Amino acid sequence: MTAVDARILDEAAHWLARRHASDFSESEHAELMRWRGQSAIHEHVWQQAERLKERMSAVPAPMGMAVLGRPRRAAGRRQFLKTAALALGAPALGWLAYRRLPWQAWNAEFRTATGERRSVTLADGSRILLNTATAVSADFDGTFRRVRQHAGEILVETAHSARYADQPFIVQTGDGEMQALGTRFIVRMHEQGTTLSVLDGAVGITPARSAQRTVVQAGERAEFDSQAVRAVAALPSEADAWTHGVLYAHDMRLEDFLAELARYRPGVLQCAPDAADLRVSGSFQVNDTARVLDLLTRTLPVRTEERTRYWVRVARR
């Protein structure tokens, strides 16, 4: 099960929530059956998800599977997750729960949904812009100004308040810490590693399992993981395009472009192998991903294949 595509796990959890919702419709049932029939892996993951639901039978009704689909009350989410942690014994179920029950992100102070952007101002006046599917928490303890990033991508503009002048501003991911040195910067989390893009000032990176500090200057981008800073390179001019709702592409492989576009679109967006190496250039508004896909079909020799509104594949004509 560890080799299963994370998207299949996410889809299974979505359908698990919808299947047991009071407004689950006949058309959705048909979509679910088509999803299960896509492959043996889809059906296997679904069976594991159903077993997960059975193990959750002890959860009080108000905290049932609707919480999984529409997390609203923090207390309910926490209780549900505690119950899930006790119930999940099989490795496959544990992996499904890990992928779809991100307790840190659910309980984060600030969050955005897929396709959403949000600006927040912290106690010291610093501003954080959250990109799609992002979760962060802020902890000002009198010694440090610490922002814990659990998922997604943020742009940070640090403030220079005299009250907080002696408290370092730090952004922390699972890969390490980034200390702002009077600056404006972007942090993006990946499945493997973190990318730091410095727009103004400088930022010091200290990986989680290393004492070595690397200072990244304005106009530079660094990739790092918990072990080390892997690479420092010149920052692309369009690094902050997403803050304006724009996805910028310059001679980008279609497969890579669709992977970026998928961040702003719920469900699955795939690229067929025969279309993967087609090239895309231009500026695209991510607020309307359907329009972007339509534009691709007008400018490239591709078509879209839609099995459901949550599953779209782009292939050659």
Results as ranks from 00 to 15, higher is better:
residue 139 D to A: 14
residue 301 P to G: 14
residue 285 Q to I: 07
residue 290 A to T: 04
residue 159 A to D: 09
residue 110 F to S: 10
residue 45 V to T: 00
residue 1 M to C: 05
residue 291 R to P: 07
residue 199 L to R: 07
residue 136 V to C: 14
residue 142 G to P: 03
residue 1 M to I: 05
residue 193 G to M: 12
residue 175 D to M: 02
residue 108 A to Y: 10
residue 69 G to C: 06
residue 223 E to D: 15
residue 258 L to I: 13
residue 92 A to K: 02
residue 120 V to S: 12
residue 256 D to Q: 08
residue 160 H to P: 01
residue 264 Y to N: 07
residue 19 R to M: 03
residue 295 L to F: 10
residue 255 E to C: 09
residue 206 T to P: 10
residue 24 F to P: 12
residue 145 R to A: 01
residue 286 V to H: 07
residue 303 R to Q: 14
residue 187 V to E: 13
residue 136 V to W: 08
residue 129 L to N: 14
residue 227 Q to P: 13
residue 186 I to D: 10
residue 285 Q to L: 06
residue 135 A to T: 12
residue 85 A to F: 06
residue 38 Q to T: 00
residue 186 I to G: 06
residue 276 A to S: 04
residue 200 D to G: 02
residue 313 R to N: 05
residue 177 E to M: 11
residue 27 S to Q: 13
residue 182 G to M: 03
residue 109 E to D: 15
residue 83 T to D: 11
residue 91 P to A: 00
residue 29 H to I: 03
residue 35 W to Q: 01
residue 148 R to I: 07
residue 232 V to P: 07
residue 236 P to Y: 03
residue 202 A to R: 01
residue 199 L to V: 11
residue 195 T to A: 15
residue 182 G to S: 04
residue 185 F to G: 02
residue 58 A to D: 05
residue 113 A to S: 13
residue 217 Q to W: 07
residue 268 V to C: 06
residue 215 V to N: 08
residue 279 R to K: 15
residue 282 G to M: 11
residue 142 G to H: 04
residue 232 V to D: 02
residue 21 A to H: 13
residue 106 W to I: 12
residue 297 T to W: 11
residue 286 V to Q: 14
residue 243 T to R: 13
residue 41 I to P: 01
